[in-house]
Design a protein around this nucleic acid. Structure first.
Lengths: 241, 241
DNA sequence: CACTCCTCTCTTGGATCCAATCGTAAGCAT
DNA sequence: ATGCTTACGATTGGATCCAAGAGAGGAGTG
């Protein structure tokens, strides 16, 4: 539709990373909202978009299917899943537990420098989202990345790769350009988000395992509630057919 | 190789569940050990085995790849992943947390009848694995299924589908015919396993949330330790080339 | 005798072809 | 006019074809 992006250009290095690249790119397009919730993914269209044949596209779609991001109906093609609010709450309850574990594990491993990194990332996220609120034209996905960075950092500090992967699996189930929007549009949400992050960092810095876990758990649950609420209001209207 | 299983026979009902069926069947063969750790999965062989062409096989393999059960190397085919012991420990730490959450959630939802079901499943598992220890000829995967059933029941009682799925994702990463073997071969392990399950049930019955979570967490960690230990001893020898 | 390079083969990867299926809509009958 | 049937268009699903990469083995040379 837009133009032939020529998937081969990007990372042509190691043989058949092509399928994984395709899956990654399609996932990104869904995450950023470029491909909206409920949209149909026609293989032929994607194929011509990326300048490849349908074969690797089909395999990429299978990957996204097992990830739970899209739904493949028998002979009717694939659609971007429209998460039900209760699904979001369920998933974020799991994610809360996992991130709490990550925070708890991080307490005994985090360094002074990493604490500074966290504070920097949090501040940066606050600033960029505030800037995006002022000037909607600068709608870079920077604040989204910075928001994620905070959580990504902690989960990586936890030193458990499986934990990181599991959290990521949950996150990549829901198109989350949405949650970034929340932080941008609503100043109160932005402020609360910042403060919650700060409290988590404080607990980490103080070496208070239980507190770090508790703050993180509550923070994630709250974020999940907001995301669920967003879907509740818009889920019936967003998907175009 | 063995014979053309004719994948179409099983569940030919709804259009293209074929790929999912194939993935499921291949996964089962890996889980049961019919396809051993480290074995190569040649597409042509699988295709003729199941009586289909390579195309759906390739898509099925992609699903297993994202699940993490197999590893697909660029032009060298797919192999069943040989989990490193530290991966097992990491994963089981995550699983322990998740199952602890499941147990905690189950406390307020479990019914008297379900408690009886749990006790029945536990007893049955103990008996079948004891029987398998006496008579290795009756090496049905029954004890394996009963072992899983205990955990599956609790996770389903927890009433969080995402939680159940996440736990299952972790479990289906490791071929686990192994862990069943442990319970069968070693009488002490079998007895301990039974007792640990009983303590979990007791906590559930008593409505003691913290205790249920704690017992479950320790139980899973212990199981993970045993599984990791098994891999530690055999990982270098099992895979055939 | 060892090392390098070349070729040959085996397997995977991408493209293409044809069959199967779903949705739609036109046509027919009541 | 409404309901049912049927035919067509569009899209996916499976099979097949050809190209490309990786490994093994052998020949040739230092």
């Amino acid at each position: 539709m837009t133009q032939t992006t020529d998937a081969l250009t990007s990372s042509n290095k190691s043989g058949s990373a092509l399928v994984d690249d395709l899956a990654s790119q399609i996932r990104d397009r869904i995450m950023t909202g470029e491909i909206p919730i409920g949209a149909q993914l026609r293989q032929a269209e994607l194929a011509s978009n990326f300048g490849v044949s349908r074969t690797p596209i089909r395999e990429a779609l299978r990957q996204l299917q097992t990830g739970g991001l899209i739904e493949v109906l028998p002979h009717r093609g694939a659609v971007v899943r429209v998460p039900a609010p209760w699904e979001v709450r369920e998933s974020y309850e799991v994610r809360a537990e996992l991130e709490a574990l990550a925070a708890a594990r991080a307490v005994s491993r985090i360094t002074r420098a990493q604490i500074d990194d966290l504070r920097g990332a949090n501040k940066e996220m606050f600033d960029t989202s505030a800037a995006a609120a002022q000037d909607p034209a600068s709608d870079t996905p920077a604040h989204q990345q910075n928001n994620d960075l905070f959580h990504t950092l902690i989960s990586s500090i936890s030193g458990n790769a499986r934990l990181t992967k599991t959290i990521d699996d949950i996150n990549t189930t829901f198109p989350r350009n949405v949650s970034a929007q929340l932080v941008v549009t609503d100043a109160r949400h932005r402020e609360e988000n910042f403060q919650e992050h700060e409290r988590i960092i404080d607990a980490l810095a103080a070496g208070d395992t239980a507190q770090a876990a508790k703050e993180m758990r509550e923070h994630v649950i709250k974020a999940g509630e907001q995301l669920a609420h967003w879907y509740e209001q818009r889920s019936s209207t967003v998907f175009h057919g």
